[in-house]
Design a protein around this nucleic acid. Structure first.
Lengths: 103, 103
DNA sequence: GGTTTATTTAGCCAAATGACGAATTATACC
DNA sequence: GGTATAATTCGTCATTTGGCTAAATAAACC
């Protein structure tokens, strides 16, 4: 769980996740979209993999990365819920925090 | 914005935010709840302050820290929304991602 | 003014992080 | 088998991070 937030703390890695939102991509295709070396990107992928934010699947000589949305969801919304945040949708005015979150 | 995720990447700092959820607290009172030295805690407070996740108010010889919930909300839910996450409350079954987030 | 109390700053250290180029591994292609 | 391509591992480096103790600052109290 801490590994997820650690992974999210780097802008390059957050960007990778955003790119993966549009569908699985190979390590090379992803790396091509960044200004850093491939070994560096590989290290970033490793951090994301270890946090289970992505899974990798070897296909031919490529490695395809898939986003694991559920892990991101659990971390982000799980943590948000601790603070009574989340679900800014009821009607369309924020009902603020009168939902008796504490007590 | 990146500073917020950076701040959230440390478990001690996340814990500080959780404690602050129950109301403002002095630096000393907060520090007493952790196993690290006060200077170390002061550095953590500095990171949280710089990310605007907390604000500090000097009161007598103490410094009172307040949680800035809105900043946490913007970062967490804002980022979650990029992925079509958020609001797991409609009725009570997750309607999953049929909300046509992309296309 | 001097002392205690609360917090931060200064200076240091070890470990982790993000970056690189070079070398390695693994697969495909001829 | 040999070569090209894709990705990772290795070794190195500079910077950042999180921790500490000691010193400095700030406010209250006698």
């Amino acid at each position: 769980m801490s590994s997820v937030f650690k992974a999210l703390s780097d802008p390059t890695r957050r960007r990778v996740l955003e790119l993966l939102r549009d569908g699985p991509q190979s390590a090379g295709d992803l790396a091509a979209k960044f200004d850093v070396s491939k070994p560096t990107m590989s290290a970033h992928f490793g951090v994301l993999r270890e946090a289970n934010l992505v899974i990798s699947e070897k296909q031919g000589k490529s490695v395809i990365y898939h986003l694991q949305l559920s892990v991101l969801e659990d971390a982000l919304l799980g943590f948000a819920q601790i603070f009574g945040l989340g679900a800014p949708d009821a009607a369309d005015q924020k009902p603020s925090k009168n939902q008796s979150v504490e007590s």
